[in-house]
């Protein structure tokens, strides 16, 4: 038992480093691809690493009226929570490090923490722009949580019905048994709807256009981040990068858990390497659709429109997906 704990402790920095490197790498890819789609050249892929380094050595300014410990503490909290997400998600074919200690419900809460940290940091920075941004962030959090929760609950319900006896909210169990194999054609459509909804929640969750109302550069000058600089800003930047990888990994674990080593009949180290590369490919596809493509394709919404989009359309679609899965279950049961 002790050995296991030591092994886990030793793995945490490795996963943190992996998350940070992957997050920054994907940020770089995101910027290059977005630039190419906008007929620009864009920065080199390593630009986010340079940005981070530059921010780290810049002066860290704390506003005079700010609540100092909250203002300085929140960036750390955001990074810590983002990295913690990765400990509960299967990455590159490996089981989650903290398997058995937390499930999807915990992940939903962990996903909230970086946003909450931003909100608190925004309020603590004593700037009207940051306050407006923080209010908007809270509103959009409430908005996208509803379809997200409905989608996650639907998946869990599907599992509890199809495979009684296993922990239905456990991400490792979900990843081990691809959801698509548990449903008939009607449920397949329902699952597809849920997948698309989670992809639509992704830009809200990681705060990119069209759902970046809380940071809207041209409206409220980066909102909650307006007073942040130097190391604190670098940490929020990092948290955003890691959270993108975290959320995309959750999506992959639920909907695209397939490996490639079985298909290619590889074994040993080759299999691990192949699965890892395949995971990166899946990650790229999810990030490309959920972040890059959407942010170059549409303008920013107003906060009222964000609420309408998530509470209205996305939630209705999620409920439709849930109904389809339920209908599918009835049809399958009738068939037996």
């Amino acid at each position: 038992m002790n050995e296991l704990i030591i092994y886990q402790l030793a793995s945490v920095p490795a996963i943190a480093a992996l998350g940070i490197i992957l997050g920054l790498l994907f940020k770089g890819i995101d910027r290059v691809l977005a630039a190419r789609m906008q007929a620009r050249i864009g920065p080199p892929i390593r630009q986010p690493f340079r940005d981070l380094r530059k921010l780290m050595i810049k002066e860290n300014i704390v506003p005079k009226n700010a609540v100092r410990f909250v203002f300085n503490g929140m960036p750390l909290l955001a990074v810590a929570a983002s990295i913690t997400i990765l400990l509960y998600v299967p990455i590159a074919g490996f089981l989650p490090l903290m398997q058995g200690y937390g499930d999807l419900i915990l992940l939903l809460y962990l996903l909230l923490i970086p946003s909450l940290a931003l909100v608190l940091g925004g309020f603590a920075s004593a700037s009207p722009y940051a306050s407006i941004g923080a209010q908007r962030e809270m509103v959009s959090m409430i908005s996208y949580e509803l379809p997200l929760a409905v989608a996650v609950a639907s998946i869990a319900w599907l599992f509890s019905r199809a495979m009684p006896g296993i922990a239905s909210f456990s991400l490792a169990a979900i990843a081990a048994n691809p959801v698509w194999e548990l449903v008939g054609p009607v449920g397949f459509i329902g699952l597809l709807a849920l997948f698309l909804i989670l992809l639509a929640v992704m830009p809200g969750e990681i705060g990119v256009i069209p759902f970046d109302t809380a940071e809207a550069e041209t409206e409220i000058a980066s909102g909650m981040l307006v007073e942040y600089s130097g190391r604190n800003l670098a940490l929020f930047y990092l948290a955003d990068a890691v959270k993108t990888v975290g959320f995309a990994s959750i999506l992959i674990a639920i909907f695209l858990p397939y490996g490639i080593s079985g298909t290619l009949s590889l074994q040993g180290a080759n299999a691990v390497a192949a699965d890892a590369l395949f995971f990166l490919l899946k990650l790229f596809i999810v990030v490309f659709i959920g972040r890059v493509l959407i942010r170059v394709a549409v303008p920013r919404l107003r906060i009222t429109q964000v609420v309408k989009a998530y509470w209205g359309y996305a939630t209705i679609a999620a409920l439709c997906g849930l109904s389809l899965i339920a209908l599918d279950a009835i049809l399958l049961a009738g068939g037996c």
């Binding site: 007929a39 256009i209 069209p210 970046d212 041209t218 170059v296 303008p299 920013r300």
Partner: peptide
């Protein structure tokens, strides 16, 4: 105007 709406793709297109 496109940039004010957060639509940078259109900004780059029009400026092209």
């Amino acid at each position: 105007a496109a940039h004010e709406l957060g639509f940078d793709s259109v900004m780059h297109y029009t400026w092209k």
